[in-house]
């Protein structure tokens, strides 16, 4: 067994273990953390498959952004755990059947009959100087530069649209007016009123 296989089995073990832990964890925040671990293991396996770009994207986008957002959502929404667990056992038989059917279908379509080494030869190994990211970038910035830029415009529209539709006018917003704060003088805020104290009057 080569070192590569040892690494693969090591990563796969953590992937399966963390996935199971995520499903069976009773605490939503812990579940998210286990999911992070499983994403990380998948990303590592992708690096073994020479798909560095996808691996890095998975870590940056899912682990770095989406999962952090999930954590925030969990902390902000006060989820009642008992309602989540209530019908777990009731759904178990149906869930198992669905899962088994999915596994059977995947075995049929993705199994050795279709993708075995005798049908599909293993892709050629690339040397240490080969960069997956460079290859993708070359495609994106030459052949597909036009659709790539258009997709960027589409994202710009999404930003403009979101702000246009949600942004509220100044009236409804609580904000500081810094220029007013700086220009303020003592006499605008404090009024000195001389009050003759009652004790003096009595004397």
């Amino acid at each position: 067994m080569g070192s590569e296989q040892i690494i693969f089995y090591f990563l796969s073990f953590w992937l399966i273990a963390s996935s199971l832990a995520m499903i069976f964890s009773r605490n939503a925040a812990k579940a998210v953390l286990f999911l992070v671990l499983s994403f990380f293991s998948v990303a590592s396996i992708w690096i073994l498959l020479e798909a560095e770009f996808l691996a890095i994207t998975l870590i940056l986008v899912y682990v770095g952004a989406v999962m952090v957002l999930f954590l925030f959502v969990i902390k902000m929404l006060n989820i009642d755990k008992s309602t989540l667990r209530a019908k777990f056992a009731g759904y178990l038989p149906l869930g198992l059947i669905v899962a088994l059917i999915i596994i059977a279908e995947m075995m049929l379509v993705l199994g050795n009959a279709q993708f075995g080494l005798d049908v599909m030869p293993a892709p050629a190994r690339h040397g240490a100087d080969y960069s997956n990211i460079t290859e993708l970038a070359l495609q994106l910035y030459t052949t597909y530069v036009y659709p790539f830029e258009l997709a960027a415009v589409l994202l710009l529209i999404a930003i403009i649209a979101a702000i246009t539709l949600v942004h509220k006018k100044e009236i409804n917003r609580k904000q500081q007016s810094i220029s007013e704060q700086v220009n303020v003088r003592a006499k605008d805020r404090i009024r000195i009123v001389s009050i003759t104290s009652p004790s003096k009057e009595n004397k």
Binding site: P147, L150, I157, I160, A161, L165
Partner: peptide
């Protein structure tokens, strides 16, 4: 303009989405 000049299915579709997304927002403005 992208749609009118689109000569692959991908650019035609992207042009259409740029148009549609802007129109949805314009209506909801």
């Amino acid at each position: 303009m992208v749609m009118v000049s689109g000569y692959s299915l991908l650019t035609l579709y992207l042009g259409l989405e740029i148009l549609s997304l802007s129109l949805y927002t314009l209506i909801a403005i």
